[in-house]
């Protein structure tokens, strides 16, 4: 009697349990479908919002981290100048998606069309959005055009590996107009093209004499550790010296917030000088590259985002060639 009643209550419990299990599973499925839809909707949206820099200049400030699937490669600053004759775009971001979204934002907020695009250098976070501007002249220096021609597609492929889906449909699209350094008038603005190098073999800074805004490209990093993968540090330091002489009201760095003073220039200068001296002294002491990677970094660079990561990348890139020179 007791056994059979125990058994029936066990059965009851069992059925209850299974019912609850099914309800939970159903709930999980419904929730995850809902969630998936949310993710899909926002998946490839960079959520670009431009911030004003004085009168008529705007900048999309990117993340100060490294490329990731989370940020979709949106790690650099892209900017635009609204002139009476139309909009000038400076750098186009890291993907076709970025370029498209940037263009939609500019056209819908200004109601004007884009008349000119500039690329400040050949790095993928600055030019892979070019595809969205095929109907506009895309201008750059000869050296930059050459490097995009020869390395653009390899850089694009590499970025697919780093950020994934965000890159879909992106191909490397080279600038369509070669320009010489010097002053030109675009949309009534007096634009000066300054040919420099050091961050890469060919870097272009743009100084808008009409507004006093300096677009430094990646020659200046602000609160973000400078990327030295293709750098010649001595040349880079020389380039910074030339930029310091300009009388700008606003400085738009390639990465990090906008400034009005010398702070970002001094910061970039300080880190690069320190890096060069540190690696040179590591070589002088006979350190192997794996020991140079483990050196302690000064406290004063704590303000620079992704300091350790970018330092290590820098050592891996620079040390072998410095060794080569040392042993010749």
């Amino acid at each position: 009697m007791t056994i059979s009643s125990n058994l029936s209550s066990f059965r009851q419990m069992h059925t209850d349990y299974i019912k609850r299990l099914f309800k939970t599973i159903l709930l999980v499925i419904v929730l995850s479908l809902f969630n998936l839809q949310l993710i899909n909707a926002s998946e490839l949206d960079y959520e670009l919002v431009a911030e004003p820099v004085g009168e008529g200049t705007y900048v999309f400030i990117g993340s100060t981290k490294y490329f990731s699937k989370k940020n979709g490669g949106n790690i650099a600053n892209a900017a635009y100048i609204v002139t009476n004759g139309g909009v000038i775009v400076i750098d186009t971001g890291s993907s076709y998606q970025y370029g498209k979204q940037m263009r939609e934002y500019i056209e819908s907020t200004t109601g004007m069309s884009i008349i000119k695009v500039f690329n400040t250098h050949h790095h993928p976070d600055h030019f892979l959005g070019n595809q969205a501007f095929k109907d506009v002249p895309i201008a750059s220096l000869q050296g930059i055009v050459n490097t995009i021609d020869s390395q653009g597609e390899a850089l694009n492929t590499n970025l697919y590996a780093l950020v994934g889906d965000w890159m879909k449909e992106t191909v490397a699209y080279s600038p369509t107009e070669v320009i010489a350094p010097g002053k030109m008038t675009v949309g009534g603005h007096e634009i000066e093209i300054i040919a420099l190098n050091g961050h890469t073999d060919s870097d272009m800074a743009i100084y808008d004499h009409t507004t006093g805004v300096l677009f430094a490209g990646d020659l200046i990093f602000h609160d973000r550790t400078p990327a030295v993968a293709n750098a010649n540090i001595q040349n880079w330091l020389n380039s910074i010296r030339q930029l310091q002489e300009l009388d700008y009201k606003y400085l738009i760095a390639g990465h990090g917030p906008v400034t009005t003073d010398q702070h970002a220039m001094l910061q970039t200068n300080d880190y690069l000088s320190w890096l060069h001296e540190t690696l040179q002294s590591a070589l002088d002491k006979g350190l192997d590259i794996s020991e140079a990677l483990q050196l302690e970094l000064p406290k004063r660079f704590q303000a620079l985002d992704i300091l350790h990561e970018e330092y290590k990348r820098g050592v891996l890139q620079l040390y072998p060639s410095m060794e080569q020179a040392y042993f010749e």
């Binding site: 192997d288 590259i289 794996s290 020991e291 990677l293 483990q294 290590k312 990348r313 891996l316 890139q317 072998p320």
Partner: peptide, 16 residues
């Protein structure tokens, strides 16, 4: 064994 977290250049990974 010291290797970097990430092999930036897969042709030249430092190890000690």
């Amino acid at each position: 064994v010291v290797v970097p977290d990430m092999a930036e250049d897969p042709m030249n990974v430092p190890v000690s």
